[in-house]
Nucleic acid binder design. Structure first.
Lengths: 205, 205
DNA sequence: GACTACATACCAACTGGTCGGTATCTAAAC
DNA sequence: GTTTAGATACCGACCAGTTGGTATGTAGTC
């Protein structure tokens, strides 16, 4: 029976689904154990505390999403701007199924625990920031290629895309559907297009 | 001692501050009573349940923010586009103090309870949507005035501004400061400016 | 005397967390 | 090649504290 380790993964999987649905605080250790089909002893064998599970869940989320976006087809475009716009199209295409299935784990968690649990906050920040960084490179390349002289930095635009997505998720939760989230991504895509449509030699502020 | 009614308001005030700091689920009735200086009997005299308090808090939030924005100076601008941009400047100027002091109550709450408490979800949606509606009128007027023919609707742009703000709050919570929130509002302001920038010469302000 | 606005005391269910125990594996000693 | 010692992976009973909620009482108002 030893040397298995399925309990840990089962608990993390249960955590992802449950926290995305009802939030971190409302998710109890007992509930997670029941869903994963393990006992409380197993939980505290693998995680020192509920908060440690939260950190592990955020880290696992980073791995999952990292792999999902790394393998996504939009990277194939030769033009860096096409890659950025392709990323947004990809994000929009991901808006399928029920709300808890397309919303963000770390965005949900960090909103609850940012003042009460620094470890989870850091893990969530790392997840969002690392994801934004993958976009930043394409934005920087596009800015260079198109000779855009502007006050905004690739880093701030990359983080802005994450802000729009996180906010779109909140509206989707408030309204109970993905439609407004899609509309917000459309606005963001239009913004990025406009930023790179700049007439030559004329700078935007 | 009777005919007072300060207990109810005290509980709601405590709820606003506490929920904005640690979230809805992590906020206990006992804690709220202690902060408001009343007993549990008083709590359940004024509110049928914790969830009912959540609804009341969202409704009170609508009133507070409604008054704050109704009295804001940006309404004085004659040009409707200036009013819209003035709104964004106002939102940016509101980013002062600690994170729990400038973030949004209903955005925080709805993320936690959207699947578990339809009443609170509705109250939060109503708060966000009503606020967006006040912006929508100015956007519609500006769109007409500047003769903008575009696929986007005033309603979707108004909701998009709310998405950006809510997302900016999440990033602020993740990073522990208002700076990225301000940067995101800058991007949003630039987007709105670009939308109303006519291709042939005439721009704005 | 009916009603409002609380206070006090209490409760069952649940909370995160602990602890002693057991089964299985690995690796080194003999 | 067998024994042994230690680590890993789990189980399940238990615990003290907290949870939202209730039942009853009481003081002032109309």
């Amino acid at each position: 029976m030893a040397r298995d380790g399925t309990a840990r993964q089962g608990l993390i999987d249960a955590a992802l689904a449950t926290i995305r649905t009802k939030g971190y605080a409302a998710t109890s250790v007992d509930e997670l154990c029941a869903k994963a089909g393990v006992t409380k002893g197993a939980f505290f064998h693998h995680f020192a505390s509920k908060d440690a599970l939260g950190v592990a869940a955020a880290e696992h989320w980073s791995e999952i999403t990292g792999a999902l976006f790394a393998d996504a087809p939009y990277h194939k475009h030769k033009d860096p701007l096409d890659r950025v716009l392709g990323y947004l199209d990809f994000r929009k295409a991901l808006l399928k199924g029920a709300v808890p299935e397309f919303t963000c784990l770390v965005g949900t968690m960090v909103q609850e625990v940012y003042e009460t649990n620094p470890d989870i906050r850091r893990a969530c920040d790392a997840s969002i920031s690392a994801h934004a960084a993958t976009l930043e490179a394409d934005i920087a390349e596009a800015k260079k290629k198109y000779g855009i002289k502007a006050a905004w930095t690739p880093a701030s635009l990359a983080l802005h895309t994450q802000a729009v997505l996180q906010g779109a998720f909140i509206l989707a939760k408030a309204k109970g559907g993905a439609d407004i989230a899609a509309a917000s991504i459309d606005h963001l895509r239009r913004y990025v297009s406009l930023l790179f449509q700049q007439p030559k030699g004329k700078a935007l502020s």
